[in-house]
């Protein structure tokens, strides 16, 4: 049993690593397809043929594809990322943008857990009761709301009609901690609403599954109150389903907050990807694509290790 689990874990990690190689190769290949355009972009549309060839070879485009791929990977891992079309250093730009996105991500994840766990526990006290049904309806509405609409509503409510928070922009943590939190609160809140809706739905479902299992029925029969059984027996196994979800959230928050960041004009990784796309700045978006894939792969591996650790510890949690 133990050995089988370990083999399965290793197999899954291998799978993630291999898929990372495939993605990086595809990203490299596709971005090199547009290399010709870059030469024309630098030299202008009516550049002479030999100038284009010279620039292409100075950028290393006439070498065999595999050696260029290795150079690409080496440059990526040694943080030798080059410059944007406008001449900024990509490494400095991404470091600055990523810190904002990571901050939003941490606030969102913490808030989502703080919201979703008590709410699900409260709703499951009485299945099909008022709180349960009400939260189901609310979750349905939040799921159906387009993300920018949620962002715009929050902005209208809390920064224009009731001016509690700034509607856009960003103040760095070094300048003012309170200003920093105030600028990031609304974007994080709108992401929190979406993520916690998903968390509550999943957690409620797995809690209610656990509540019908025989060991819970046994505890109830022995006279434990429903409230205590939820906390002591059902919650720990049900929370396993949150771990896989958590890693998915990290994956989607690293990049998927592009819309929210754009609406609130927060300088994060997502809004950088959007502006790079509109400027056709392939070198920036290639690096972002690589970083996001790497981060997603890492979070998947970590989630699998945690799930492995839990299922190795207690057999009944794993299922």
């Amino acid at each position: 049993m133990q050995g089988g689990l370990r083999v399965k874990l290793l197999r899954e990690i291998l799978l993630v690593a291999l898929s990372l190689i495939i993605i990086s190769f595809a990203v490299f290949f596709l971005s090199s397809l547009s290399s010709g355009n870059i030469s024309y972009y630098v030299l202008g549309d009516n550049a002479r043929e030999e100038d284009v060839l010279k620039l292409s070879s100075s950028l290393g485009y006439d070498e065999p594809i595999l050696s260029r791929y290795i150079v690409f990977l080496r440059n990526f891992f040694t943080l030798n990322w080059g410059r944007t079309i406008n001449g900024y250093d990509i490494r400095a730009l991404i470091a600055q943008r990523a810190s904002v996105t990571v901050e939003i991500m941490i606030i969102t994840l913490v808030l989502s857990l703080l919201v979703s766990i008590p709410v699900s526990l409260f709703c499951i006290r009485k299945e099909k009761g008022f709180a349960d049904r009400f939260s189901d309806a609310l979750i349905l509405i939040i799921f159906s709301l387009p993300s920018f609409f949620l962002a715009i509503i929050l902005m209208l409510c809390f920064s224009i009609y009731i001016p509690l928070f700034p509607s856009s922009g960003f103040i760095s943590m070094r300048t003012s901690v309170i200003g920093n939190i105030r600028t990031l609160f609304l974007p994080s809140l709108s992401l929190t609403l979406m993520h916690s809706a998903l968390y509550i739905r999943v957690l409620k479902r797995s809690l209610s599954d656990q509540m019908h299992k025989s060991y819970v029925l046994g505890s109830l029969a022995r006279g434990k109150s429903r409230k205590r059984v939820i906390l002591t027996d059902a919650f720990a196994p049900a929370s396993v389903s949150l771990i896989a979800l958590f890693s998915q959230s990290i994956a989607s928050l690293i990049a998927g907050s592009a819309v929210t960041e754009t609406v609130f004009a927060v300088p994060g990784l997502g809004s950088l990807a959007v502006s790079a796309c509109l400027q056709r700045d392939v070198s920036v978006i290639t690096i972002i694509m690589m970083i996001v894939s790497l981060a997603v792969a890492l979070s998947m591996i970590v989630a699998r290790i945690i799930i492995y650790a839990i299922s190795a510890k207690g057999g009944e949690y794993g299922r």
């Binding site: 990049a255 592009a258 997502g270 990807a273 694509m289």
Partner: peptide, 9 residues
Amino acid sequence: SLNPIILAL
């Protein structure tokens, strides 16, 4: 492991 929005961008 691909995010649709980043992939599309």
